[in-house]
Simulated assay, not measured.
Amino acid sequence: MRLSTVILPVRRWSEGGRAEWQRAEELGFHTAYTYDHLSWRSFRDRPWFGAVPTLTAAAAATSRIRLGTLVTSPNFRHPVTLAKDLIVLDDISEGRVTLGIGAGGTGFDAVALGQEAWTPKERADRFAEFVPLLDRLLTEGAVTQEGTFYSAVEARGLPGCAQRPRLPFAVAATGPRGLRLAARHGQAWVTTGDPKLYETGTPEESRAAIRGQIDRLGTACAEIGREVSAMEKILLTGFTPDRSGPMESLDAFVDFAGRHFELGITEIVVHSPIPDSEFAADQRVFERIGTEALAQLPSIS
């Protein structure tokens, strides 16, 4: 099992931002991700910095930890410009980037460019076109493609990614179409659990739902002759019914991690604590998770 963290881009680089990414590397986390949003929920009227510049700075400030988005979406991105940014980021980081990517939602990003918020079907339709085109742009030298939503005309991707054939995709999906995209294009799959259970579900119901998601991912992989075991399965914590429980103590986290490993999850991501927010947590517990949790789980580390 891998343990990773997500660092929300809420601190100025000179006022704790740099130190937070460097500390994540010191603690031994496998990957440090950040959200790729223009703003997010309760942070709308608080400082919030862009994901790609933040990750570029983090790449220069670290040397070992992997870096990534969790997640990027089509809400305000276009495959051509995103591909160019990712190639640069992968080069600067010397091949340490993972692209977490999802269909997006109905938050601030959905209307910030002046468009109407897309329906779930429209988001799925766009995602189904966005991911394959981005895949081509990161693996081929020149791409021309006319799509319903996204097009490219002799778009150049030279010199390509530092990672070959391209940087890995971690595809966030729970529905049939998204899971098929994950199976075909993803090196990893991402879940936050079942959002229907967030408010009123139980931890047991949540684990059953995640087990069902993994089963459906397996079916999608089988349809194209792929082994689901070849994919990493990432759980972003904080959105299941026991959302705060894993961060209450090291023992609580170890129990949480073990139960989800039994389901097939191979990477667990915890939020770096942010005071006075839904991600408030004891910094000492967070640091102990980074340095001690895997040693408490010898059978899965």
Rank of each mutant, 00 (worst) to 15 (best):
R64M: 05
T69E: 09
L70V: 03
V71K: 13
T72Y: 08
F76W: 14
P79S: 09
V80F: 10
L82K: 06
A83F: 05
I87F: 12
V88E: 06
D91C: 01
D91Y: 08
I92W: 05
E94Q: 07
E94T: 02
E94M: 00
G95N: 04
T98H: 06
L99T: 05
L99I: 11
L99V: 12
G102S: 08
G102C: 08
A103M: 11
A103F: 01
G104M: 01
G105D: 15
T106C: 00
T106L: 04
G107D: 12
V111W: 06
E116D: 04
E116M: 03
A117Y: 03
W118V: 00
W118S: 00
T119H: 10
P120F: 11
K121Q: 15
K121L: 15
R123F: 05
A124W: 02
D125R: 07
D125Q: 10
F127K: 01
P132A: 08
L133N: 09
L133S: 11
D135P: 05
L138P: 08
T139R: 15
T139Y: 06
E140R: 14
V143G: 07
Q145N: 09
E146R: 14
T148C: 04
S151H: 06
V153L: 14
V153E: 14
R156D: 15
G157Q: 06
G157L: 07
L158Y: 14
G160C: 04
G160I: 00
C161V: 10
C161Y: 13
Q163W: 12
P165N: 10
L167M: 14
V171E: 11
A172F: 13
A173N: 10
T174E: 14
P176Q: 13
R177D: 09
G178R: 05
R180I: 03
L181K: 03
L181E: 04
L181P: 01
R184M: 06
H185T: 07
H185S: 11
Q187F: 02
A188G: 09
V190F: 12
T192V: 12
G193E: 05
P195D: 06
P195I: 01
K196A: 13
L197M: 02
E199W: 10
G201V: 01
T202R: 00
T202S: 14
P203N: 01
E204R: 02
S206T: 00
R207N: 02
